[in-house]
């Protein structure tokens, strides 16, 4: 996982509540056995006018000009601004993969679905919860000024607007440490291998039918 430190980038607005993972990356792309190649299919059904299937040359497909990410002013965006319950639905990790591979490094919303939240952090996609009022303001500013950029500092847990206004966000210290250092969580857990083994032995004694 890549380290997430300070990032500064163009903001794109996704002004819908309850954006689900089926919308973020439709099912036909889940057939892949790889971890990469999902970027062109982020929001596939909204983004293109035709129907996409794996293996197509997606650069030749007809783009939906009304879809927000297709507007030239949001090209190259790295911060996605979203509404409540972003990422609800299935546990597909292809959703954060697609967002990252498209180029997003962070998503800001009032709330996220639980599994999506975990999946994202494990892949170095920073999800930032800000209160609905702050998010409303960021939407207004993004829409009204072209080239609107935000600076995100994970160390100090702040989002800073071009006007210098700062919003503080919360993040669990463990997740923060993993993101900042690009840590391998499996490696961290395996540092407790002896403890796991000891637990397992006792657990087997108590409930042998589980083994």
């Amino acid at each position: 996982m890549e380290k997430f430190v300070r990032r500064e980038g163009l903001v794109a607005p996704m002004d819908r509540a309850n954006v689900d993972t089926d919308a973020i990356i439709p099912k036909q792309y889940l057939k892949s056995i790889k971890r990469t190649g999902f970027g062109p299919n982020l929001f596939d059904e909204w983004r293109y006018l035709d129907h996409g299937e794996p293996g197509m040359d997606h650069s030749k497909r007809r783009l939906n000009p009304d879809f927000v990410l297709n507007q030239p002013r949001y090209r190259g965006a790295t911060v996605l601004l979203a509404r409540d319950n972003f990422g609800c639905g299935s546990s597909r990790e292809h959703a954060p993969w697609a967002l990252l591979q498209y180029g997003f490094q962070a998503v800001i919303a009032p709330s996220f679905a639980d599994i999506f939240y975990n999946n994202s952090l494990k892949n170095g996609l920073l999800l930032i919860r800000l209160d609905a009022k702050a998010v409303d303001q960021l939407f207004r500013e993004t829409l009204s000024s072209e080239g609107y950029r935000l600076a995100i500092d994970l160390e100090s847990q702040t989002v800073t607007t071009p006007g210098g206004q700062r919003f503080q966000f919360d993040i669990d210290p463990f997740n923060k440490r993993c993101l900042l250092n690009g840590l391998d969580e499996i490696g961290l857990t395996l540092e407790h291998a002896d403890k796991i083994r000891a637990f397992e032995a006792k657990h087997r004694e108590r409930q042998p039918w589980l083994f």
Binding site: S91, R92, E93, D114, I115, N118, N119, K122, N123, D172, F174, E185, I186, L188, T189, L190, A193, I196, E200
Partner: peptide, 22 residues
């Protein structure tokens, strides 16, 4: 619990989930 692919790998390798109690 439903989990994502990174967590699947984590459980395969460690038999544990790392999480905070909901």
């Amino acid at each position: 619990f439903g989990i994502g692919t990174s967590e699947v790998e984590h459980v395969l390798a460690t038999q544990c989930m790392a999480m905070k109690k909901p």
